[in-house]
Design a protein around this nucleic acid. Structure first.
Length: 897
RNA sequence: GGGCGAGUAGCUCAGCUGGUAUAGAGCACCUGCCUUACAAGCAGGGGGUCGGGAGUUCAAACCUCUCCUCGCCUACCA
């Protein structure tokens, strides 16, 4: 037995063993023809370049918790996994690799380059999946999809064409966020704003008519003066009203531009005059459109100034800024330079400052699509947890902007738009369809758009493509969709609420007129002990695989949930030098506790010769108590998980198993067990405890799958084909919940704790047993105490225990009172009277204070009139009891004199 | 500027549809235990004017107002 059940739990062995067995037995495969009610979750696709971080750990643990639990509760469960192709990240990775061999993607050409990317994907794309498996998650891997799979690509193409034909996709020249490093457009979400300390330069724009006078114009980007086409002042600004329509000269550039009137100019900011550079600033672009201004681009795609800037042609934008400033100074065109801090956008990928850039891009018109997607969230068809995210969602949806979906990359879904040499274009599945649509002959030459779509343009179809929509070339519902749409839960980080969550709702509503999921759980952001996000560059992000190796997957899973309150960030104490997370001990120690409780019960079982006896007819109060606590616990777990309070769930489990089951019940069990020499009774008792223990394993299985499976097989000796994850989850039996018994045992616990405290204060060693007398006049308490006599005697380390109705305190006796119960410890030596007096006086003082408070309360007519009767009754009872206790304590004090 | 959230023990947090004898837990700390499941453990202990102030109420950590501090998201102020 001991050989089979080692002293400590070794996660490594169990983890590799069971995951393979589960996979080989295909037990997590979902059946879309099943009659069972369905429960499904879409896994947020990790990207193929991804490696496992703690965000994944938390996110997937949560999903697995719900999936495993629902599976055990009899649902046909499906967890849809997959990865996305991560356009920029993947392409950048491969380009970097090629660069080390001095090859650029242009050297290879599009086709060859893409071959390289696919090779890379084949080689490394599965890494994240393998890593996820170490967590023990139970998704249906047979359904794994990739966003560039044929059917997913079909869906993307189909959707693009439909939206194009409906006029919801259009091509436009707009200011977009441009990444000079990757040389592609970025979405708003791929731009991170950071406060930067720069300078505000006030330049002199001299009047054409009167060059001795000038207009002061402030800017932080003097290098954009080559794109200046106007200076705007506020039409109501008295200082400048008379100047509107006059012309000024752009410094250095010497171009004549007009002074125009526009509300955009804020009289209170800077000089009140703002230069308008429509090709290099979003607001200026709007002003430019309104006033029909020229759009002059002065920057190249790689972030250098272009040919129109003359001597600065080819000079980097920031270098150019420096030389332009010194040149301006030279000509006395700078009035002043002030320190200035403001927000600048940086590319999330490359980290370089983003350039607002005027270029031709494809956009989705979002406003017509947003209405319904907002409604389903407001109406609660899609619920957010925590629900305060609704406000953020609402704000975004009501101020939604068009979505720039084109990317100047090669890796991704190529835009299905075909152009004629004459500049006509149309969206189509292929060239021949394009020709038909445009009414051209079949030999008319066409060119396909060279750009690809934003990766999110495939991710927003994730609910559809995971369920294999468009696999057969039609938009009909698939078998998966019939069974599993809408899915039940989506677990994701709040920072992609717009990128992804909102757009999935939009797409589902648009294309199949159904919500994609009913609940969205927004996970916590994981931070280190001093509140910083975990990041590789800070070195505060240990490799989860190492942490799992050290503490075990179950321990990591449990600890993550234990530390994750709904709607708040998780703080973990990261040890940067050791790359360790010491809090993981919480889960590891808990796993070990569970392990050892099982080990103990099995040891006891193996000591018995009697054949199994499962009758449950002679339950003690303690047995009934643990049953009551067990059923209460199931009930509380149900509530917590229904409300998505996962850390409540883990704390409820932790407290029940450690405190109630191990600390109290197993200890009582020992006494009941050792006290009997009736093997039949012992057998019944062990089986009773093991039954609860097995149910406990089922309760923890969703969060600790490996250890629960491992122990279940040790306690039940079933074959590997059987998995605890396919057994029935315990259901709360309310008839077993007995609040009287729970409060009785709780009083018993108070009694034991008081005796232990007295012994500890008296420095009585654990091995020393002394006589104990317990007195109470409460009849029902006498019955309870007598039933628990052996237990009390043992827990209290009593050499002899008398339970009586009255006791007169003698010599060398320490006395205390717990509610209606008097405790007397008979010492061998003399009592330290001074110390004892002090203790009793403190106790007397406390009760006098409380009695005074209680009496004041009860004599307050407002309280008696207005408080609910139950509160008053309780208060009266309490007062009586406290008075009695006070008297007993006073008597005890007197006896010391 | 707008929105959201947080402030309770040295640290991390529960408790917040107002009422239960001393406001809880884990970690850390102190004391005593190798008590035959577990030292990754057992038993006990110290430590809190519940961010400040005002109000509502018989009763406030919890409700209202206000102020302070700190996070996060969001916004085009050159």
């Amino acid at each position: 037995m001991i050989d089979e059940f080692p002293k400590t739990y070794e996660p490594k062995v169990a983890e590799s063993k069971w995951y393979d067995i589960w996979q080989n037995n295909n037990i997590y495969k979902a059946d879309n023809k099943s009659d069972k009610p369905s429960y499904s979750i879409l896994m947020p696709p990790p990207n193929v370049t991804g490696i496992l971080h703690f965000g994944h750990v938390l996110n997937h643990t949560l999903q697995d918790l719900y999936i495993r639990r629902k599976r055990m509760q009899g649902f046909e469960v499906c967890w849809f996994p997959g990865t996305d192709h991560a356009g920029i990240a993947t392409q950048a990775r491969v380009e970097k690799e090629l660069q080390s061999k001095n090859i650029s993607r242009h050297d290879l050409g599009r086709e060859k380059f893409l071959e390289h990317v696919w090779d890379w994907k084949e080689k490394y794309g599965e890494i994240i999946i393998k890593q996820l498996k170490t967590l023990g998650i139970s998704c249906d891997w047979s359904r794994t999809i990739f966003t560039l799979d044929d059917h997913a690509s079909n869906a993307v193409k189909e959707v693009f064409i439909q939206l194009f034909d409906e006029g919801l996709i259009y091509k436009g020249k707009r200011i977009i966020n441009w990444s000079p490093l990757s040389q592609t457009a970025l979405s708003d979400e791929e731009v991170e704003f950071r406060e930067v300390n720069e300078h505000l330069y006030t330049m002199r724009y001299r009047f054409v008519d009167n060059p001795r006078e000038y207009l002061s114009v402030a800017t932080v980007r003097p290098e954009t003066i080559f794109g200046d086409v106007a200076v705007a002042v506020n039409p109501n600004d008295e200082r400048f009203k008379h100047l509107i329509g006059l012309k000024v000269i752009v410094p250095l550039v010497n171009r004549e531009i007009s002074i125009i009137a526009d509300d955009y100019a804020d009289p209170a900011f800077g000089t009140g005059c703002v230069k308008i550079t429509p090709a290099h600033d979003t607001n200026d672009f709007e002003v430019g459109l309104l006033h029909n201004l020229q759009m002059i681009n002065s920057i190249n795609p790689n972030g250098t100034l272009n040919e129109i800037t003359g001597e600065y042609n080819g000079v980097d934008r920031f270098e150019a800024r420096k030389s332009i400033i010194s040149k301006l100074k030279e000509f006395d065109l700078i009035e002043k330079i002030e320190d200035y801090s403001h927000n600048v956008g940086f590319s999330q990928r490359g980290g370089e400052p983003v350039e607002p850039y005027l270029s031709d891009q494809w956009f989705v018109k979002m406003q017509p699509l947003a209405q319904k997607a907002l409604k389903v969230v407001i109406d609660g068809e899609v619920k957010f947890h925590p629900n305060h995210w609704i406000k953020t969602y609402e704000h975004w949806m009501t101020n939604i902007r068009d979505w720039c979906i084109s990317r100047q990359l090669w890796w991704g879904h190529r835009i299905p738009v075909y152009y004629t040499t004459e500049g006509k274009f149309v969206a189509a599945h292929d060239e021949s369809e394009a020709r038909t649509k445009m009414g051209l002959t079949m030999d008319h030459p066409l060119v396909q758009d060279s750009d690809v779509l934003d990766t999110w343009f495939s991710s927003w179809l994730w609910p559809l493509t995971t369920m294999r929509w468009m696999e057969d070339g039609t938009k009909d519902s698939t078998s998966d969709m019939k069974k599993f749409m809408a899915t039940d839960l989506l677990v994701t980080a709040p920072d992609i609420i717009f990128f992804w969550v909102a757009r999935m709702i939009i797409a589902n509503e648009k294309f199949i007129d159904q919500v994609p999921f009913k609940n969205v759980y927004f996970t916590s952001t994981i931070r280190d002990g001093i509140g910083r996000k975990l990041s590789k560059s800070l070195g505060n992000s240990p490799d989860p695989l190492e942490i799992i190796k050290k503490y075990g997957a179950d321990a990591v899973r449990f600890t993550m949930l234990y530390l994750s309150p709904l709607g708040q960030d998780v703080k973990m104490d990261v040890d940067v030098t050791a790359q360790d997370i010491p809090s993981m001990e919480i889960g590891r120690n808990f796993a070990n506790k569970i392990w050892n409780a099982g080990r103990f019960l099995l040891m006891k079982k193996s000591e018995l010769t009697t054949i199994d006896d499962n009758s449950l007819d002679i339950l003690s109060t303690a047995d009934k108590w643990i049953l009551s606590r067990f059923n209460t616990t199931i009930d509380e777990i149900d509530k917590a998980l229904n409300d998505f309070k996962v850390n409540d769930y883990s704390k409820i489990l932790y407290d029940f198993i450690w405190r109630d089951f191990c600390d109290w019940y197993v200890e009582i069990f020992k006494i009941q067990f050792y006290d009997s020499d009736n093997d039949a009774y012992k057998s019944r008792l062990v089986n009773f405890a093991l039954k609860i223990y097995d149910d406990i394993l089922k309760l923890i299985h969703p969060i600790m799958p490996f250890i629960s499976e491992e122990i279940y097989h040790l306690t039940n000796k079933v074959s590997d084909v059987v998995s605890i994850s396919q057994l029935d989850y315990p259901i709360a039996d309310k008839s077993m919940i007995d609040s009287d018994i729970e409060s009785s045992i709780s009083l018993f616990q108070k009694l034991i704790e008081e005796i232990r405290k007295l012994r500890s204060e008296l420095n009585i060693n654990h091995s020393v047993k002394i006589p104990l007398i317990i007195a109470t006049q409460n009849e029902s308490l006498l019955v309870l105490l007598n039933e628990l006599k052996k237990v009390i005697s043992n827990f209290a380390r009593a050499s002899n225990l008398d339970i009586i109705t009255n006791y007169t305190k003698g010599e060398n006796t320490i006395a205390s009172v717990v509610r209606d119960i008097e405790i007397y410890l008979i010492l061998e030596g003399n009592v330290d009277t001074a110390k004892e007096k002090e203790r009793l006086l403190k106790e007397i003082e406390r009760f006098e204070r409380n009695i005074k408070g209680s009496e004041a309360k009860l004599s307050n007519s407002n309280f008696v009139d207005k408080a609910p009767p139950s509160v008053i009754a309780y208060e009266k009872e309490k007062l009586e009891s406290m008075k009695e206790t006070l008297i007993k304590n006073k008597t005890n004090l007197e006896s010391l004199n």
